[in-house]
Amino acid sequence: MSNAHLYMLGGVCLFTLGTYALLTKTQLLRKILAANVMGSGVFLVLIAGAYRSPSGLPDPVPHAMVLTGIVVAISMTALALVLLGRMVPGSRKGDKE
């Protein structure tokens, strides 16, 4: 088993852990964090795949995919945090009680 396989397996484990936490945790903030762990797992699988390229040089396409994925993950997290802020009254700066 090569290093790349080990990383890939680690990515799948992170994805599974994140999914489990997202489904079982009741606190919304924990769920948001769990979704980010899931995302990191997928990114690890992609990066490990790039490393495995037969020519010895890393494949740039998965890198581009991960960069795009990170941008998407940030937007998703931002939207989730805004929704969370709206749901919990008084949690936002400047909210009047």
């Binding site: 997202l22 919304l28 979704a35 899931m38 998703m76 989730a80 929704l83 969370l84 749901m87």
Partner: peptide, 10 residues
Amino acid sequence: AMRYLFVSMI
């Protein structure tokens, strides 16, 4: 919407 967002993320 929050639930929809989590489903959409998974």
